[in-house]
Nucleic acid binder design. Structure first.
Length: 503
RNA sequence: GCGCCUCUAGCUCAACGGCAGAGCAACGGACUCUUAAUCCGCAGGUUCCGGGUUCAAAUCCCGGGGGGCGCACCA
């Protein structure tokens, strides 16, 4: 279907189903029942009830009267006896409704509820003859009517675009999907908790920026009417966070939504979440230590495990993770020691040998980075810190003390993807200025990912940025690993989609 | 942006040139221990859209749209 929620197709195809539900709502109104009560007091959740009473023998009455609330996901009518499943945020519990012991009002409600309705139910917690924990309902209230039918209760919802466009019904129909997001929120909470433990301050920096910076990427553009200026959506919080370190926040982090106007595929979303953290007095090695602690803690806390299977790959996060010098590893694999100072023709020939495409304006450093990206990265399954990247592709990182063409920078590779990135931050204003000018020239030449020099950032550096370790962790990719899914859209609640057709 | 695949009832799927079907959900009915409840009955369609080929199109062809995957760019 071109558009499952199109108004006309609704009017046509959903009319019969929806009309039935509206009719029942009218019947209840006719009985003086408000189908949209303002509030409801519940005394127990499904999880609490199970925690208190699981393991009882069949046919036991606990004597505890509870009031539950949730969505009705299944009804099994049995004449004067009905069973139903009530699902709330914590799980589900069975309702047992006997005509002989329910109120008249409850009978009226029961006769006019549909799958998907929100209901409240009061009764004694008991076990059924089969031994299932149930609420022996005396009172039943409608809390809100579902006018649209739910997806198939057994098969759930599989249509991918409907799952992304109408995440709400994906969540209520597919337990797998709920589990993915439960895991996501636990992982993010764990990251935040760990940062707090390590004395980092959480901050919020601008998403609307006069000038995108902190990464090489194409920004989304927008416009301020009040100021009559064009603005970019942030591509990385990096520059603002380092300005906060200048300001005295020695340990800062942000769990930041970044926006990049680039390709969309299973690994890339136009908006994605990264944790960026900056720590005064640290260097690239402290960054790796911190990254390892964060990822391991998120995995343990959100899943209780350290090994994950994605597709046919098994990934083991057990620390410590190996740290390999990029140039050493590359030498091992391509059989030649490369260096950014090598003549560009030499590095190009290695690229050709390994089917690595390149552009004529790329220097040896960029070519080495491309070799890493296309030859080494796919080999990294279990976590590996790759250390030492060409300065040419690291405009915000310090040079290493013994090699001015190499930056004190690492990338964390897991499952053939870049998971994290970090370095000893470049804090020498003149050098940063020079690197910016190089980028500005590239921008002037038409490089859409390059940006003009950020003068406000240089000015900040001139007030003094202490030695600083910075890291960035791709939160969506981390969650993909922890939930063992292959598509980034599966871990984003409402992934960017083409708008639904107008009619 | 290019290539491949896909779109059928509210949902999950059949039919693959010959009357558009099933399960779930819905609707009417039976049933006091079900849990994908069961049983009887009944209803539900612009087969994504537009054009073409054909006696006949959900099916084949062309164009368009949505979605997925792969490649390229990017994290």
């Amino acid at each position: 279907m071109a558009d499952p929620t199109d108004e006309e197709s609704d009017a046509r195809a959903l009319d019969a189903l929806s009309a039935e539900r509206r009719k029942k709502r009218d019947v209840l109104i006719g009985h003086g029942i408000d189908p949209y009560p303002l509030r409801f007091d519940r005394t127990a959740t499904a999880a609490e009830l199970h925690q208190r009473h699981d393991g009882l023998e069949p046919d036991v009455r606990t004597g505890e009267v509870v009031t539950m609330a949730g969505r009705l996901t299944s009804v099994r009518g049995h004449g004067k006896l009905s069973f139903a499943t009530l699902a709330d945020m914590t799980g589900s519990v069975q309702l047992l409704m006997q005509a002989s012991t329910t109120t008249e009002e409850a009978k009226t409600v029961l006769a006019n509820v549909d799958l998907g309705d929100w209901v409240g139910a009061k009764g004694e917690a008991i076990t059924s003859r089969r031994g299932e924990l149930s609420v022996d309902v005396t009172d039943l209230w409608l809390l809100s009517k579902a006018l649209r039918p739910l997806p198939d209760k057994w098969h759930g919802l599989t249509a991918t675009d409907t799952r992304y466009r109408q995440r709400e019904i994906d969540l209520l129909a597919n337990a797998d999907s709920r589990h993915v997001f439960d895991t996501r929120f636990k992982a993010v909470a764990a990251l935040r908790r760990q940062m707090m433990i390590e004395d980092f301050i959480e901050v919020d920096t601008p998403i609307l920026q006069p000038q995108a910076g902190g990464a090489l990427a194409r920004p989304f553009m927008t416009h301020s009417n009040a100021l009559d200026i064009d603005l970019s959506l942030r591509i990385a919080p990096e520059l603002y966070l380092k300005r906060l370190v200048v300001g005295g926040y020695e340990r800062v982090f942000e769990i930041a939504r970044n926006f990049r106007n680039e390709g969309i595929d299973t690994r890339h979303s136009p908006e994605f979440t990264a944790l960026e953290a900056y720590r005064a007095f640290g260097d690239v090695n402290d960054g790796m230590d911190l990254t390892e602690r964060l990822v391991v803690e998120a995995a343990r806390s959100a899943t209780g495990r350290l090994t994950f299977t994605v597709g046919d790959r098994t990934i083991d996060l057990t620390p410590p993770w190996p740290r390999r010098e990029l140039l050493d590893w590359l030498e091992e694999v391509v059989g030649r020691r490369l260096h950014p100072s090598d003549p560009v023709e030499d590095v190009r020939s290695v690229c050709k040998e390994h089917d690595v495409d390149f552009l004529p304006e790329w220097g040896s450093g960029k070519l080495i980075f491309e070799l890493y990206d296309t030859v080494l990265l796919p080999m990294a399954l279990d976590p590996v810190f790759v250390v030492g990247f060409p300065v040419e592709v690291s405009p915000l990182a310090r040079q290493t003390p013994d090699d001015a063409m190499m930056a004190a920078r690492f990338e964390l590779a897991i499952d053939a993807k870049e998971f994290a990135n970090g370095y000893s931050e470049l804090n020498i204003p003149e050098e940063q200025q020079e690197r910016f000018l190089g980028e500005a020239e590239a921008a002037a030449r038409g490089d859409l990912e390059a940006h003009p020099a950020d003068r406000a950032f240089i000015r900040a550096l001139e007030y003094g940025l202490p030695p600083t370790s910075g890291i960035g962790i791709g939160v969506d990719r981390l969650v993909m690993l922890l939930t063992e899914v292959e598509a980034i859209r599966d871990v984003i609640l409402f992934p960017m989609m083409r708008p639904e057709a107008a009619s």
